[in-house]
């Protein structure tokens, strides 16, 4: 009964395909064009300041450093685009690294089981965030703030105030090493490979029906529900994705630096800044995961540039704050016009 529902005679195909108005393809809220332009400008500036920046090994090293933040931003994107926040990822990263060090304690044989456990733990924390938010109807801002505090306290208690144990070299290779002897590039860092994998998965997820429904839930949860979507489930999965992303980021970060309570500090805000910078609208329903990841890359480039210019690292949080304010204000203005 569906397709022969042609209405009155003489009706030419009414819907022509083509680029429509609105955000996605142009300049409006949710578009990735602005962040791309900022990124290109910043990359040019960095290149001027540090001429060898475009040598493949240097560029790859930069990407390697940016990988954890980009992965976190991808995770955070799923939560934000559904209309929520995840403030727990920073302390989750810390918890993951501290747990890894204590459980591995220098034993190479423990590496793979612990990695599996870390991924499971990240997913679990995310799902708990999601379930509390959706089933108990606690605003995600509060849920994840609570989870942040719980994780900080639990890790302190568990370790007795200072991290114990050590990571194995096998564990650290993901953040540090790569495939050697690749033509032109030299070493291809594992972190970059992991990043590529995460990026592909994230983009595919957003192109799938799940991604479209996630956007719909963030746009108008009531409409999504009344159209048959399992909104609670979709949002919970988004939190799970964020937790999983935090676990992956933690594994990479554990390789870069040492084991400390500071590993993940402030990362939740950096990730949110990155997502917003990527044109994703707080409150949900607009913006792409590619934009969020580009936002993270842009933020990392900006921090690198500030560093090259000799600006104190202490200023970087002020810069992030300004970016959030500016991006949200611009987004609001754009939507109003």
């Amino acid at each position: 009964m569906s397709t022969e529902l042609a209405a009155p005679a003489g009706s030419a195909p009414a819907v022509t395909s083509g680029l429509g108005g609105g955000g996605r393809s142009g300049w409006g809220a949710g578009s990735i064009r602005p962040v791309l332009i900022i990124l290109v400008l910043l990359l040019i500036a960095v290149g001027i300041r540090q001429p060898d920046f475009y040598n493949p090994p240097v560029l790859l090293a930069f990407l390697k450093r940016a990988a954890p933040l980009i992965i976190l931003a991808a995770g955070q994107y799923f939560v934000i685009v559904a209309g929520d926040f995840d403030l727990s990822v920073g302390s989750l990263v810390t918890a993951e690294v501290v747990i890894a060090a204590r459980l591995i304690d220098g034993d190479p044989a423990a590496t793979w089981p612990v990695i599996a456990l870390l991924l499971g733990f990240g997913l679990l924390i995310g799902l708990v965030n999601g379930l509390v938010t959706t089933l108990l109807q606690v605003p995600s801002f509060i849920t994840t703030l609570g989870m942040y505090l719980v994780l900080v306290g639990a890790v302190y208690t568990w370790t007795g105030g200072s991290p114990r144990g050590a990571l194995s070299e096998e564990f650290r290779q993901f953040g540090r090493r790569g495939i050697d002897g690749v033509p032109v590039l030299g070493q291809l860092p594992y972190a970059v490979l992991v990043l590529a994998g995460v990026a592909v998965l994230a983009v595919l997820a957003m192109r799938s029906d799940f991604g479209k429904v996630l956007l719909a839930v963030g746009d108008n949860p009531r409409a999504a529900r009344v159209t048959g979507a399992r909104t609670a489930r979709v949002r919970t999965i988004a939190f799970g994705a964020s937790g999983l992303a935090a676990a992956v980021a933690a594994i990479l970060l554990g390789g870069f630096g040492g084991v400390s309570f500071q590993v993940g500090q402030g990362l939740e805000f950096t990730a949110i800044t990155a997502v917003v910078l990527g044109g994703v609208v707080l409150g949900g329903g607009r913006g792409s995961v590619a934009g969020a990841m580009l936002g993270a890359l842009t933020l990392q480039t900006l921090l690198t540039l500030l560093n090259l210019l000799g600006v104190s690292g202490a200023l970087s949080s002020a810069v992030q704050g300004l970016i959030i304010l500016a991006a949200v204000a611009v987004g609001t203005l754009r939507r109003r016009t």
Binding site: G20, D209, V213, L215, N220, R222, A223, A224, T227, G285
Partner: peptide, 25 residues
């Protein structure tokens, strides 16, 4: 308030029920 996801495209709105109820990768 309850029918449309306003920021999404015409096509996405038209496909929403199928995607929500019968999701595919």
């Amino acid at each position: 308030g309850e029918g449309l996801v306003l920021s999404q495209s015409v096509l996405d709105n038209a496909l929403l029920a199928q995607r929500a109820v019968n999701p595919r990768w």
